[in-house]
């Protein structure tokens, strides 16, 4: 696993932000992955020397600003998700592919649950089941990140 350049990290973040800003239509928004979250969590686990909780928090802040929601909402959930991700960061090499999938599904689901919780506290109403769908597209995006930037788990023969 080659070390990743800092510029690569920043560039993917910018691309993620652009996709976040893309004008999604009504149906698109149901399955839209959380681009920035996936990208940042990937770098957090893959290149902890570039990306730490602070960066993930900052990405969350960008999401807040771009959605026009309460400032700090996404930032908080992103930071908590990053922390949850870091707990097992050093053990990830021992995970096999499916364990890793389960783990990231847990992370993305946790972020969505936290946002839901915050929105409910703020007087929102319970969304329907499609609220959970983006976790699947998150996973697809996660797989794309793995294909482009390398596996997190160690290859079998080592």
């Amino acid at each position: 696993m080659k070390p990743v350049k800092f510029s690569t990290f920043l560039f993917t973040m910018l691309v993620g932000l652009t996709f976040q800003l893309y004008p999604w239509s009504n149906t698109g928004i149901i399955i839209r992955p959380d681009f920035l979250l996936v990208i940042m969590i990937y770098w957090l686990l893959q290149a902890p020397y570039h990306c730490n909780i602070g960066w993930v928090w900052f990405a969350g802040l960008l999401v807040d600003l771009s959605t026009g929601s309460l400032l700090g909402q996404h930032a908080l959930t992103f930071a908590v998700t990053a922390f949850l991700g870091l707990i097992y960061q050093r053990r990830l090499v021992l995970f096999n592919r499916w364990q890793l999938y389960l783990y990231v599904i847990f992370l993305f689901g946790a972020q969505r649950a936290l946002i839901l919780l915050l929105k409910l506290f703020a007087g929102g109403e319970l969304p329907d089941w499609t609220y959970g769908l983006p976790v699947i597209s998150d996973l697809i995006l996660w797989q794309c990140m793995i294909i482009w930037f390398g596996e997190l788990t160690r290859p079998k023969k080592l």
Binding site: N52, G54, V80, A82
Partner: peptide, 15 residues
């Protein structure tokens, strides 16, 4: 990580 988390959580709550 935990101290970072605490710091950023506090920051976002304040925000």
């Amino acid at each position: 990580p935990f101290s970072r988390l605490m710091f950023f959580c506090t920051l976002s709550l304040v925000m």
